[in-house]
Each structure stands twice: as structure tokens, then as C-alpha cells.
């Protein structure tokens, strides 16, 4: 519950922000935050840094594009109440399959294997025209109208984003306290011991990835509505690394870190142009990432936490 309260300031945004800040800054940050949350979940509780989260999000996005309204002549349209559950199922399934492939890999091995899977999917979407429309991908994707409210309007869309963000945070925090969630953490700490108390580890690892796929999928659906298009570049190395950067900058130890990192990333991405050459954004983000990794391995969330605890301990000295 407490962690969802963190999103409260985001809920107040509509009272004073214009549509640009509402959607381009806060909306986009929350969407990227949800996808990064799926990475943070795997990193914090399974102990695996996965590079395939943009891929799982992309699977949901492509499902929405293929079965929803689009302006390319690929796919078949179905009502949104069929498409949305289908997209979630596909994303969860993609997570499970990736988990099955990577189940025996930990640490740096898992990084390499999930990265290879992510890039293989990118090449696949680029070459396949029947389902992914290759290089061009899908455009003209529209968010549906539900009960007379169009989700393409900034305010309803933003409210949906914040609702989904809060639900995802609550899901993660509830799930890690469930028997399966505890077992996932036990596998992180001592996989052989989990076997020794009679629990096979493969289903546990696969369900952790599947759960991550579910979270990434919710972000993926919102993202494809936000972008209104999807192509192989949406699942390419750029987004893959962006999601990692967000999660690392925010901090891999706590689910909230994903949203902190996403907000920092979007603010940098949007306003860096004011003080550096737009072209050099990658150098800037690379330097920020390097500084965080070298100076604050627990990310902005870790920094904020240590500042807060210092403030709580010695309120008087902090004034100096």
C-alpha cells in the first residue's frame, strides 16, 4: 500500500499541468516506469537483470496493433475487450518462454542471453511481414473508446496510466509476499536449497519471468496507444537499453526506483536540448548512467533513502 502512495503526487498533476506535461512528461514517464518495473522486479527478487523487457512489452504492443485498428493492411480487427486480454496473455506467455530459455542462467550469463533473445526478436520483426509488417511496422493505432470516453483524450488517458501504474505496483508488492513470491526470492538466495526442500526451481523461475511479462505487457499496451505506432525499432536495441538505463538510474533494489528513473530519464530526454546539443543526448545519458553506477549503485532511490535516513537521524546537523 505504502509504495502506491508514492504515486500520489502523479495523481495531483492534472490539477495544475497542461496537456504537454500531462502526457508527454508524466504520462510517458509512468509508461516507461511500468516497463522498467518489470525489469526491477526480476532484478530485485529473482536476482536477474533481464534485457528482454522491451521485448515482452513489444509483444503486447504488436498484439494490440495486429488485432486493433491500424492504417496498414495487416492484421484483423477485433473488439478491444478481446484484444486487451489477448495482448496480456501473449506478453505473459512471451515472458514464460524467455524464462524457460534463460532458466539456468544467472548474473552476467542471464544478461547476455536475454539480450540475445531481445535482439533476435528485433531482427525477426524486421524480416517478418505477415505478422509484424517488417521494417515499417504498424501505424495509426488508436486507443479505444470505452463507455463514451475516448482514451485518446489526454486526461482520461493519463488517469488510465496512473491507475495501471498503481495496480502494477500493488501487484508486485502483493506478489512478492505470496508463497510463490517468497519462493522466487528463495531461488535468488539459494536455488539448491529450494530443491532440497522439495520445490523444483524451473516452474518458479518461469513464473517470475511470466509475471514480469504481465507487468511489461501492461506497459506495452499503454505505450503503443501513446506512440500510436509500433515497428521493429520499438523493440530494438535503443528501447532495450533505455529500459535498462531507467531501471539502473532509479535503483534496482526497489520497485519504486523504476518510476523515479523513468521520470529522470524523460525530463533529461525532453529538456537536455536546452543546455546541450540535441545530438549529444546519448553522451549525456551515458555519463549520467556511468556516474550513477560508479557513485550510487542503488540508484536515485537508494540516494534518496540514505538522505532521508540521515535527515531523520540528525535533523539539526542537516541544517549546516
Amino acid at each position: 500500500m505504502k509504495s502506491a502512495l508514492f504515486l500520489l503526487p502523479f495523481a495531483l498533476v492534472p490539477f495544475f499541468a497542461n496537456d504537454f506535461w500531462l502526457v508527454q512528461i508524466f504520462g510517458r514517464a509512468l509508461i516507461l516506469g511500468i516497463i522498467a518495473l518489470s525489469l526491477t522486479f526480476l532484478a530485485a527478487y529473482l536476482g536477474v537483470v533481464s534485457f528482454a523487457q522491451a521485448t515482452m512489452a513489444g509483444v503486447a504492443g504488436y498484439t494490440v496493433a495486429y488485432f486493433g485498428p491500424n492504417t496498414v493492411d495487416v492484421g484483423r480487427e477485433m473488439p478491444f475487450f478481446v484484444v486487451l486480454p489477448l495482448a496480456m496473455i501473449m506478453a505473459t506467455l512471451s515472458g514464460a518462454i524467455i524464462g524457460l530459455i534463460a532458466r539456468r542462467s544467472q548474473g552476467i550469463y542471464a544478461i547476455m542471453i536475454t539480450l540475445a533473445i531481445g535482439v533476435a526478436f528485433f531482427y525477426f520483426t524486421r524480416q517478418n511481414y505477415n505478422y509484424f509488417n517488417g521494417w515499417t511496422g504498424f501505424s495509426g493505432i488508436r486507443a479505444p473508446e470505452i463507455a463514451g470516453t475516448s482514451l485518446r483524450e489526454p486526461l482520461p488517458f493519463y488517469l488510465l496510466i496512473i491507475l495501471v501504474s498503481a495496480l502494477c505496483l500493488l501487484f508486485v508488492n502483493g506478489f512478492i509476499k505470496s508463497p510463490l513470491g517468497l519462493t522466487i526470492q528463495a531461488v535468488r538466495d539459494a536455488p539448491k536449497r529450494v530443491l532440497a526442500i522439495g520445490i523444483p526451481t524451473t516452474p518458479v523461475i518461469v513464473s517470475a519471468y511470466a509475471f514480469a511479462g504481465f507487468i511489461a505487457g501492461s506497459g506495452g499496451i499503454l505505450n503503443v496507444w501513446y506512440q500510436e505506432r509500433i515497428s521493429s525499432f520499438s523493440v530494438g536495441l535503443g528501447p532495450i537499453v533505455d529500459i535498462l538505463v531507467i531501471a539502473v538510474i532509479g535503483g534496482l533494489k526497489n520497485p519504486i526506483g523504476a518510476f523515479i528513473g523513468a521520470l529522470a530519464f524523460v525530463l533529461l530526454d525532453t529538456f537536455a536540448v536546452d543546455f546541450i546539443d540535441r545530438e549529444r543526448f546519448n553522451t549525456l545519458i551515458g555519463l549520467v548512467l556511468l556516474a550513477i553506477i560508479m557513485g550510487a549503485p542503488d540508484g536515485l532511490h537508494g540516494l534518496a533513502k540514505s538522505w532521508l535516513s540521515r535527515f531523520k537521524k540528525r535533523p539539526s546537523e542537516n541544517q549546516v
Binding site: 508463497p179 517468497l182 519462493t183 538466495d189 536449497r193 526442500i197
Partner: peptide, 18 residues
């Protein structure tokens, strides 16, 4: 042992095997 879990959670896992 499962360093990230509490004593209660560890014993719970041992009891229930999920």
C-alpha cells in the same frame, strides 16, 4: 539459507513447499 527472507517466511516455505 534464504538470506533475503525472514525466519517466518523461510520456515513457511519449508512447511508448505508452496
Amino acid at each position: 539459507l534464504f538470506d533475503g527472507l525472514t525466519v517466518r517466511e523461510t520456515l513457511f516455505l519449508a512447511v508448505s513447499s508452496v
